[in-house]
C-alpha cells in the first residue's frame, strides 16, 4: 500500500503532498535512529533546562526502535510510515490480534490496537518551540491515526480502535479525537485505555 495524502507545510501554511505506505523496512528504523534521535536529544536538553517544562519530555524517547525490528515479520502487526521530501516524517505500529474491545457495549469485539505512534521530532511543535524553531510539517500524527481507523474499517472492525495513552497524550485522544477513556490498565503501567466505537470513529473521519 502506498498512497498520496496531504499534510501541511508549516512554513507556507499550505498543504503538501506526502506518501503513506506500509512497506516499512529496517532502513526506516535506521533512519529514525540516525536522523530523529539527535534532534530529540537537543529538544529534550532544552526542555530539561526549564523546570516547568522538564516533565514534558516524553518517556518513549528513551526507547530504541531497533529492538522491535523482529516484529516486522509478524502477520498480525502492521507498520505505517509517512514520507515527505524524501524523509520519514512519522511511523505507526498497529496490531489486529493482541487486544479486543473493553467498552461494555462492544466488549470482546475485535479492534485495531495502536501500539505505537511517533512523528519525527521536527514535526512536533512542543519540541521545536524550546529550540526556537518552527516545526516542519503538521498533521502527520493525525494522518497516521486516520490510517488506523481506516484499517479498522477495512478489517471489518467497523472503526473500532483501542490504545494505551501516555499521560501527556490523554488530552489528544480523549478531548481532541473523541475516544472514550475506559480506565487505567494495571497490566500496562496504569496507562489509560482509550477506545473508539464505530460511531466515534465515523465522527472522527467526518470531522464532526
Amino acid at each position: 500500500m502506498r498512497e498520496t495524502i496531504q499534510i501541511i507545510d508549516s512554513q507556507s501554511g499550505l498543504p503538501i503532498d506526502a506518501e503513506i505506505f506500509d512497506e516499512i523496512t529496517l532502513e526506516h528504523f535506521i533512519e529514525t535512529q540516525a536522523d530523529w534521535r539527535p534532534v530529540v536529544l537537543d529538544a529534550a536538553r532544552a526542555l530539561s533546562k526549564d523546570p516547568n517544562r522538564a516533565t514534558l519530555i516524553p518517556r518513549h524517547y528513551h526507547w530504541d526502535w531497533t529492538r522491535k525490528e523482529a516484529e516486522l515479520k509478524m502477520l498480525a502487526l502492521k507498520f505505517y510510515g509517512i514520507s515527505c521530501q524524501g524523509h520519514l516524517q512519522g511511523i505507526m505500529k498497529v496490531d489486529t490480534v493482541a487486544r479486543s474491545c473493553r467498552l461494555p457495549e462492544q466488549q470482546g469485539k475485535p479492534l485495531v490496537y495502536i501500539d505505537y505512534i511517533e512523528t519525527a521530532p521536527w514535526n512536533i511543535k512542543l519540541l521545536m518551540e524550546p529550540l526556537g524553531k518552527r516545526q516542519q510539517y503538521r498533521g502527520v500524527g493525525s494522518r497516521l491515526f486516520e490510517a488506523a481507523v481506516l484499517q479498522s474499517e477495512e478489517e471489518g472492525f467497523k472503526g473500532r480502535l483501542g490504545l494505551h495513552s501516555l499521560p501527556g497524550s490523554e488530552g489528544f485522544y480523549v478531548k481532541e479525537c473523541g475516544m472514550t477513556p475506559v480506565g487505567r490498565d494495571p497490566h500496562k503501567q496504569n496507562l489509560l485505555w482509550c477506545e473508539f466505537t464505530p460511531e466515534q470513529s465515523r465522527r472522527y473521519l467526518a470531522g464532526e
Binding site: 499534510i7 501541511i8 514534558l56 516524553p58 518517556r59 518513549h60 526507547w63 522491535k68 505500529k93 496490531d95 490496537y113 495502536i114 501500539d115 505505537y116 505512534i117 511517533e118 512523528t119 512536533i124 511543535k125 512542543l126 516545526q135 503538521r138 498533521g139 502527520v140 500524527g141 493525525s142 491515526f145 490504545l163 494505551h164 495513552s165 501516555l166 501527556g168 497524550s169 488530552g171 489528544f172 485522544y173 481532541e176 479525537c177 500496562k188 503501567q189 496507562l191
Partner: peptide, 15 residues
C-alpha cells in the same frame, strides 16, 4: 493539525 499541535501524541504500547 491544530489539535495535534497542542499535545504530544505518543501512544503507550511500546512503553
Amino acid at each position: 493539525a491544530e489539535q495535534e499541535d497542542r499535545h504530544f501524541i505518543s501512544v503507550g504500547g511500546l512503553i
